[in-house]
Design a protein around this nucleic acid. Sequence first.
DNA 1: GAGAGCTAGGCGAACGTTCGCCTAAATACT
DNA 2: AGTATTTAGGCGAACGTTCGCCTAGCTCTC
Lengths: 347, 347
Amino acid sequence: MANNVTLKDVARRAGVSYQTVSKVLRNQIQVTPEVRARVQQAVEELGYRPNITARSLRLQTSHLIGYSWKSAHERFVAPILEEFEQSIVNAAERLGYHILLFPYHQGPDLYRTYEELVYSGRVDGFILSDLEFDDPRIPVLDRLEVPLVAFGRTHSGSATFPYVDVDGRAGIRQAVAHLLEQGHQRIAFLGWPEHSRVGTDRLSGYWEAMEAAGLPVDPAWIMRSSGQYDFGYAAAHTLLDLPAQRRPSAIVTVYDLIAVGAVQAAQERGLQVGPDVAVTGFDDTPLPPYLLPGLTTLRQPAWEVGQRVVELLVRLFQGDEPAESELHVLVSPELVIRDSSRGHRPR
Amino acid sequence: MANNVTLKDVARRAGVSYQTVSKVLRNQIQVTPEVRARVQQAVEELGYRPNITARSLRLQTSHLIGYSWKSAHERFVAPILEEFEQSIVNAAERLGYHILLFPYHQGPDLYRTYEELVYSGRVDGFILSDLEFDDPRIPVLDRLEVPLVAFGRTHSGSATFPYVDVDGRAGIRQAVAHLLEQGHQRIAFLGWPEHSRVGTDRLSGYWEAMEAAGLPVDPAWIMRSSGQYDFGYAAAHTLLDLPAQRRPSAIVTVYDLIAVGAVQAAQERGLQVGPDVAVTGFDDTPLPPYLLPGLTTLRQPAWEVGQRVVELLVRLFQGDEPAESELHVLVSPELVIRDSSRGHRPR
DNA sequence: GAGAGCTAGGCGAACGTTCGCCTAAATACT
DNA sequence: AGTATTTAGGCGAACGTTCGCCTAGCTCTC
């Protein structure tokens, strides 16, 4: 450690006991103005900073939060996570905590690793992102009885743990509603497969919006796959090959890159994206600017999610017992309307 | 803290003093096999894990490394950093350390913030990335006399601090050499402005390679800007507008998105990228797959850099005094040859 | 068979805090 | 004026380790 000025050093200089210094600095005691001034001056002159380790030992809390996320190769490119990471660090700092990185690599020693981290007092709790359908981290951490808050949910049934998530269903509802407003009636949906919680959730948003509008849904309009660009490209071609009466004039997708594929397919067929066929994405991925037209998409409020996750976790640390509605939070994505869904001219 | 099994609990169960348990577990003492077995059994049965905080206090080291990086909005999109982050976490774990996130936001309280972190014993040292031309963090941390290792350099003169960096100069040399092999003679360079350390470094690689080949360089072939796609696009048009005798047949760039812009421009002119005009990038950014042809580029060895950064830092913690060549490490990027620089047919 | 040398393990102290209890002096009250 | 109450600050203990020194008992040697 670079600095070794301790309470005792300050105390000696200020002419009081070191315990008194401790209390003065934390306003846990009444002292005469002179003593307070002497203490403060000594602190300044010596450059005293309380030793966090000693404090942690005494207080039995590390003020450290473990952040477990999935490595980039194992998931879609998602700049959202970078923003989320920034956000949790920011919020943690604000509340007197720090974030400890703890990547999630699957394996048989999962329990051991977390047990180690928890029992050794390294961290006070965890933040998880990239939740899987049936995430193995949840039961492990549950068993260790350590506070955690997740960014995302597992499959709907078992959401016993606290989480903050983006309301994909509401997002897709917004997107569909926007397309309806533009005059579209036949709207297709490109989503992720059945075993994807997120995919299923978003699909139900589509159903709800179509149902609310009283519009029929042709089963051919719904396509699901784990692909990205290629899937969007192929699926759009298939959709646009449908006979005129059944051919969709708008395509809602669950991921920007799927949307990009669809846009390319449409453009290849000489269609103008926006007027002829509308396309929407999800995530607001920073895309190369030559991708014209601008893509209408749903921006994930990653910053807000991060702030809330940390705030909730800190409340749990403090022994609060938040109400159900505070333990399971959904925040809506924001619809960003660009040219890819504007200027519809039915033909 | 979730677990409160301490040395004393283990000792009681094993029938020895707690200090002995401590020593047995760290092999710092000779004991009879029976005692060792009793201790080990007690540890297992109680699920004992040494308390890191107490150990840190005693040993005066937190085994925590602060990682200071720049937020995504303030820099180019660089998936490299994600890989780097993964890598340092991995290496740190391997060596018994953890990574603490500590984003770098400029401001007048820079010194205070770092002083706080260091003097309070929160971290043992720092890893910095996204170094700026004249990075303010360096003098601050220097003054605090805290070990640090950087990913990247500041301007060439003042490299007093330990760093590991990618050898952009050598990278560009490789790219140019490859193009020469393909039969190109007139090679252009699109780079970053004068005040960019990285840009200047890479430009010198270009000069060196051209000089080594004994080829003249037309000043018009060198263009510098802080732009990305747009710069590449516009610059390529300018270059390809040159009279035939001076027109380059290959374009080396310092960034993938610049290369993409150049590719687009070439394609717009009806040129076939690869055969007619070769283009190379830098970073091996995961690009949307419809970007054909595949881009020849220089892959940054972010993983290796991360490993080395941590290893070096840990050596510094241990009081080692590495030789000059170990304190300032350059690793070469790897040339990934794809279609954008293959099949040259001079015309 | 007594002193020297080993060996196994005990013991006190320290790392730098925070917390609760204690006490001497000052003030208030009847 | 004598007692009760408040006030300012001291003091011991504890959080869970690690480290160095100490010692009781054994083994060896001549």
